[in-house]
Nucleic acid binder design. Sequence first.
DNA 1: GTATTATTGTAACAATTTGAGACAATAAAT
DNA 2: ATTTATTGTCTCAAATTGTTACAATAATAC
Lengths: 250, 250
Amino acid sequence: MDPNKKKQLPLAEDFIPHLAYDSVIFGFNGKQLKILILEYHNTGLFALPGGFVKRDEPLNTAVSRGLKERTGLDEIYLEQFYTFGDFSRYDPEVMRVILEANGYDLKNENHWLLDRFISVAYYALINYNEVAPRPDELSDSINWYAIEELPALIQDHQKIVEKALATLRENLDKKLVGMNLLPEKFTMKELQQVYEAVLGEKLRRTTFQRKMLSLDILERHEKRFSGRAHKAPFLYSFKSKKKQRHPSSA
Amino acid sequence: MDPNKKKQLPLAEDFIPHLAYDSVIFGFNGKQLKILILEYHNTGLFALPGGFVKRDEPLNTAVSRGLKERTGLDEIYLEQFYTFGDFSRYDPEVMRVILEANGYDLKNENHWLLDRFISVAYYALINYNEVAPRPDELSDSINWYAIEELPALIQDHQKIVEKALATLRENLDKKLVGMNLLPEKFTMKELQQVYEAVLGEKLRRTTFQRKMLSLDILERHEKRFSGRAHKAPFLYSFKSKKKQRHPSSA
DNA sequence: GTATTATTGTAACAATTTGAGACAATAAAT
DNA sequence: ATTTATTGTCTCAAATTGTTACAATAATAC
């Protein structure tokens, strides 16, 4: 990478105008469900990671590309959940502030980034410990925030997060969500903690264990040396090896 | 309306480029689940009803507007379910054939309608008997087709229909689907037939009746004089009066 | 070593929900 | 009056889920 590379705004001619994506990237730290939030240089503005779609690039590919740039991960589990196209999300002043704080001169009043955008929203599930998030050119940081402790977000990003979480909850049973938020091997308790963090409620231990085992999706391995003063739990993994990516076609 | 009005293609300056919507409009005729399909003049090409989004118009409003033009109905129940952005859907020759068959001269090789489009897909639920569908300027007919007997559709429209149906099935229990496919008052048997048509499988009568009554969403009215040689059934309606429109914000 | 502590895994039984069949009620036709 | 087709509800069986109990066991305290 060239440290002298000059900051370059995306060029209008390379991208589909008026179309963006936003991503809600979920991770689980063992206790809480968290998402990645960007902070823009010198503005105090917080936002979801997002990006634009190249003119010659499939929509889903654009999102995968953006997430790879930010997380370093290939093969991220992604699920598209809604496309936001209201005017409640159109606020060119926010974008102007962000760009000017980054030293761009916007004498060109009609810069394409200040236009109205329709945004396709995705959520991603990643293994919290495998990732070292990287900010993009306009941001000074990207950090994990617990979903109950988010800062105020720009535009309609709060609404996007809420809908992402609602969709994740609906998909919890049908889409093997745990597989993508946990490491390869995990205990039953860890799996239960993921479910509880997503649903925001406590579950009954014995019922949960019986249910999970009856689904016939887990493989039981050796016991873990817990180093704690009690019986050691079994480790489990999901039977289907491959993580699903883009389970819906596009 | 002016019968001499000249056919007019939508103008690039009025609409967001590269962005369209497609709609899967479901109706129930008492036996089968059907959807509305357009046929284009002199081409034998079949497609879902779709349209474009004005530059100063919210996405959901654009879809409502298009559906009102085609069905005459205001307040249609609409649910956005996926945004299609692959290149499998990009086939400018199809659009060229449609336009030329309608007498348009496309010497301008770069006409915006021949560009790549990303399409936001919605399904609608309407009361089959309240509607007299109207074709648009480019189509010579719009007709109901049973979902098991669709003609070959252009581009990725078959895939869009399949995903619409899959989403409708997932939403069947949580979104009061029956309310929007049936008239105000209906019998328990008619409600069951809607469920069976959507799910594509037979349901057990007694279990279905018990389940529906236990949900506490139905109001029981007088009996219907069926005119048939058996006990007359009760009529029911849904307790919540207002049909929901755009239950998800945008 | 032995008792104690904090889990974990599973069994047992109760409560609830769903499946399946039976049957009385009844509107019209015979 | 009898027959036919369907509706509404009840009952009992089967399956699922809620709840409690308890043995197993890895580390710690003594």
